[in-house]
Amino acid sequence: MSAQPGERDYDQAGGTAEPALPASPPVQNPLTLVMKIRSPEDYQQLNEMLLQIYSRPPTENDITVALNKIATVHFARFVFLENNTKLAVITTFDHDFERYIADFVDEIGHVFDMLLSHMEGAPPLPVRDHRQEFLEYVREHDMPAIQPFYSAYPTLTVLDILDAADPVSDVG
């Protein structure tokens, strides 16, 4: 892998004008969003909906399409917890959720509308019209991780990694 600018202060620490190993925390952050499902019927509907979305090819999977476009989420998974009474959305994403909230609600707000319509204490919907309440709901339901958060590549964003894996150089 050729040296990309984004990784230089990581793998060339101690170079002439480079800062030392990053003192700042990783560019990535964890989200462990745990939401309480309203009823067993709601669980059934949620489960069917998620299975239905994930049975589609990636180009027709709303979640995959949106996350590909947003390009700040490294990993994302849905896990039912506690005998299917809760749904966890577990992700690792770049930077600051609030800064990109407009992009999130535009691109994937409709998926959250669907999920949240089955949750107890959901914020007002649709989320794109209630951005602040959605942010507050996510903050309240994000289970804090024990710090520090570990990253194998603390300076690299989703876009850095995709770029490094992209063999296209320049054909312009």
Binding site: P5, G6, E7, H95, R99, L159, D160, D163
Partner: peptide, 18 residues
């Protein structure tokens, strides 16, 4: 957003770091 993410930071695009 433009000032904080695009002007005064670089992680919005590949390879720019901070």
């Amino acid at each position: 957003f433009l000032m904080s993410e695009w002007v005064n930071d670089g992680i919005f695009a590949a390879g720019l770091g901070r």
